[in-house]
Amino acid sequence: MTKCKLCGHESEEISKSIGVCVNCLRKDKQAVKTAMESHFKWRELMGLPPEPPKNGELQCKICVNECKIPRDSSGYCGIIWNKGGRLTTITGTFDKGYFHWYLDPHPTNCVAEPVCPEREHYGFYNLAVFFAGCNLNCLFCQNIHHKYMIKEGRIDMGEGVVLSTNELANIAMQRRVTCVCYFGGDPTPHSIYALKVSRKILKRTEESKRIKRICWETNGLENPRIMKEMAELSLKSGGILKIDWKAYTPRVYQALTGINGKKLSKG
């Protein structure tokens, strides 16, 4: 049992990390400030900005955070950087991504498996691309490993790989690979890279008359123009775009993810 720090209510459903009950989160502005304490401690441990920076020299518009990144620092995600006055990624270029990948045999553990057109293709594989970094800071992330991949702004080659768009496209074109699913972390910070790879894959499939489905598992916070292109590539290839919405109430959303849900509800 955990006691709410504001109202004193005790329940098994109150998280020790958040420290307050859901009723206080919905009604009391102070509740969000209390919940954010855990976010700030965790991000300091990881060497990441406590909040989306707003006073830097370069603005990133890849996602809803729209970070204004100081020189030689990263945005909230830890993937997009201002390096010497140039907006780039942790790899130094939008033509290279940082992730780890594996071939997941069908039927996969994909959340869209019940409606996946590839679910009965035994002997074939989904190319699972697990991106480092995320533009949220979910306290209960089931794939928290993505944060350790970018701890203190470093690329750890023992945790992942850096591949060019051509190198990843080559893996996707293996005969027994029928689809590609981008997740992580979240594909949002790497979305420019992922879109480039996807276009290359679909161009090659048109030339070879093969099927390669493009799928995404994302929090849905991409710039609308980026999200539209992601959806178009999935539609064209017969893939699926899955959005993982964390909470309906803006203050609950912020308590869980570290990002102001009020802004998202207006976007």
Score class of each variant (00 low, 15 high):
C67Y: 06
N23A: 10
I214P: 01
T218V: 05
I201S: 02
D72E: 13
C77D: 11
P187H: 13
M46C: 02
P250E: 05
P117F: 03
I18A: 03
P70S: 07
Y98H: 07
F40R: 15
C4P: 03
R251A: 09
C110N: 07
S234N: 07
K41T: 12
I62L: 12
D186M: 02
R213N: 05
P189G: 09
K266D: 07
P187S: 13
C63Q: 08
Y122T: 12
L264H: 08
V197H: 03
K209M: 07
P70T: 06
S164I: 03
T257P: 06
G78T: 11
K5T: 11
T91G: 09
W42V: 10
I150N: 01
R119F: 02
N137R: 14
Y122K: 15
A247P: 01
L136A: 03
D244Q: 12
L127M: 03
K266Y: 05
K263N: 06
L58F: 07
P114F: 10
K16V: 00
V162I: 11
R176P: 00
M36G: 09
D186R: 12
V111M: 05
Y182M: 09
V180S: 01
G85N: 09
F40N: 13
M230C: 14
P117E: 03
L256I: 15
G267P: 00
L6S: 10
Y193C: 06
A172T: 09
I259Y: 02
M1E: 05
L264Y: 13
L163K: 15
P107Q: 12
H121D: 00
